[in-house]
Protein backbone atom coordinates (compact mmCIF):
# COMPACT_ATOMS: atom_id res chain seq x y z
CA UNK A 1 0.00 0.00 0.00
CA UNK A 2 1.38 3.39 -0.96
CA UNK A 3 0.23 6.76 0.28
CA UNK A 4 1.70 10.18 -0.38
CA UNK A 5 3.04 13.39 1.08
CA UNK A 6 3.81 16.68 -0.69
CA UNK A 7 7.33 18.12 -0.74
CA UNK A 8 6.85 21.70 -1.92
CA UNK A 9 4.83 20.81 -5.03
CA UNK A 10 6.18 17.31 -5.59
CA UNK A 11 4.09 14.27 -4.79
CA UNK A 12 6.18 11.82 -2.72
CA UNK A 13 4.86 8.29 -2.06
CA UNK A 14 5.61 6.54 1.25
CA UNK A 15 5.06 3.18 2.89
CA UNK A 16 3.28 2.87 6.27
CA UNK A 17 5.57 3.38 9.24
CA UNK A 18 8.17 5.19 7.16
CA UNK A 19 9.73 8.53 8.15
CA UNK A 20 9.58 11.67 6.03
CA UNK A 21 13.35 11.26 5.54
CA UNK A 22 12.95 7.72 4.16
CA UNK A 23 10.19 8.81 1.77
CA UNK A 24 12.16 11.84 0.50
CA UNK A 25 15.28 9.70 0.09
CA UNK A 26 13.53 7.08 -2.01
CA UNK A 27 12.09 9.85 -4.20
CA UNK A 28 15.67 11.08 -4.76
CA UNK A 29 15.07 14.35 -2.89
CA UNK A 30 18.40 14.99 -1.17
CA UNK A 31 18.51 18.76 -1.15
CA UNK A 32 16.05 20.11 1.43
CA UNK A 33 16.88 23.71 0.51
CA UNK A 34 16.25 26.53 0.62
CA UNK A 35 18.12 27.64 -2.50
CA UNK A 36 20.78 30.24 -1.83
CA UNK A 37 21.26 29.63 1.89
CA UNK A 38 24.84 29.13 3.07
CA UNK A 39 23.92 25.66 4.34
CA UNK A 40 21.02 23.80 2.80
CA UNK A 41 18.93 21.27 4.64
CA UNK A 42 19.67 17.57 4.21
CA UNK A 43 19.18 14.37 6.15
CA UNK A 44 22.47 13.98 8.00
CA UNK A 45 22.67 12.26 11.40
CA UNK A 46 19.41 10.30 11.20
CA UNK A 47 18.82 10.48 14.98
CA UNK A 48 17.45 13.97 15.57
CA UNK A 49 20.73 15.36 16.92
CA UNK A 50 21.94 17.65 14.11
CA UNK A 51 18.64 19.38 13.20
CA UNK A 52 19.80 19.63 9.56
CA UNK A 53 16.71 17.80 8.25
CA UNK A 54 14.14 20.00 9.99
CA UNK A 55 11.32 20.73 7.55
CA UNK A 56 8.41 23.16 7.69
CA UNK A 57 5.01 21.52 8.05
CA UNK A 58 1.67 22.97 7.07
CA UNK A 59 -0.39 23.62 10.18
CA UNK A 60 2.25 22.70 12.74
CA UNK A 61 5.68 23.27 14.23
CA UNK A 62 8.71 22.28 12.12
CA UNK A 63 9.91 18.70 12.68
CA UNK A 64 12.98 16.56 12.08
CA UNK A 65 12.31 14.56 8.88
CA UNK A 66 14.38 11.68 10.29
CA UNK A 67 12.19 11.24 13.39
CA UNK A 68 8.74 12.01 12.04
CA UNK A 69 6.54 9.45 10.40
CA UNK A 70 4.98 10.42 7.07
CA UNK A 71 1.18 10.82 7.20
CA UNK A 72 -1.07 10.71 4.17
CA UNK A 73 -1.60 14.16 2.68
CA UNK A 74 1.10 15.87 4.79
CA UNK A 75 2.43 19.05 3.17
CA UNK A 76 6.05 19.91 3.92
CA UNK A 77 8.69 22.27 2.57
CA UNK A 78 12.08 23.92 3.13
CA UNK A 79 12.81 25.95 6.22
CA UNK A 80 13.66 29.64 5.76
CA UNK A 81 17.32 30.33 4.98
CA UNK A 82 19.79 30.95 7.79
CA UNK A 83 21.04 34.48 7.20
CA UNK A 84 24.45 35.49 8.49
CA UNK A 85 25.37 39.13 8.38
CA UNK A 86 28.94 40.03 7.47
CA UNK A 87 29.96 42.68 9.94
Amino acid sequence: MMTRIFWNDYVVPFRPGETIAAALGRAGIINLGPAGGPARGRVFCGIGACQACVVAIEGGAPVEACLTLARDGLRIGSMPAVVVSDE
Binding site: G25, R26, L32, R40, R42, F44, G46, I47, C66
Partner: peptide
Protein backbone atom coordinates in the same frame (compact mmCIF):
# COMPACT_ATOMS: atom_id res chain seq x y z
CA UNK B 1 30.76 18.35 4.35
CA UNK B 2 27.62 20.48 4.69
CA UNK B 3 26.39 19.74 1.15
CA UNK B 4 23.17 17.82 0.47
CA UNK B 5 24.23 14.28 -0.44
CA UNK B 6 26.71 14.08 2.45
CA UNK B 7 25.35 12.27 5.49
CA UNK B 8 26.71 10.31 8.41
CA UNK B 9 27.40 6.60 7.93
CA UNK B 10 25.41 5.84 11.08
CA UNK B 11 22.47 7.92 9.85
CA UNK B 12 22.52 6.07 6.54
CA UNK B 13 22.67 2.79 8.45
CA UNK B 14 19.55 3.47 10.54
CA UNK B 15 17.69 4.54 7.39
CA UNK B 16 18.79 1.32 5.69
CA UNK B 17 17.61 -0.73 8.68
CA UNK B 18 14.21 0.98 8.54
CA UNK B 19 13.59 0.71 4.82
CA UNK B 20 15.79 -2.19 3.72
CA UNK B 21 16.55 -0.14 0.63
CA UNK B 22 19.92 1.58 0.00
CA UNK B 23 20.19 5.06 -1.55
CA UNK B 24 20.29 4.99 -5.36
Amino acid sequence: WDLPGVMTAGGAQVLLKETGVPPT
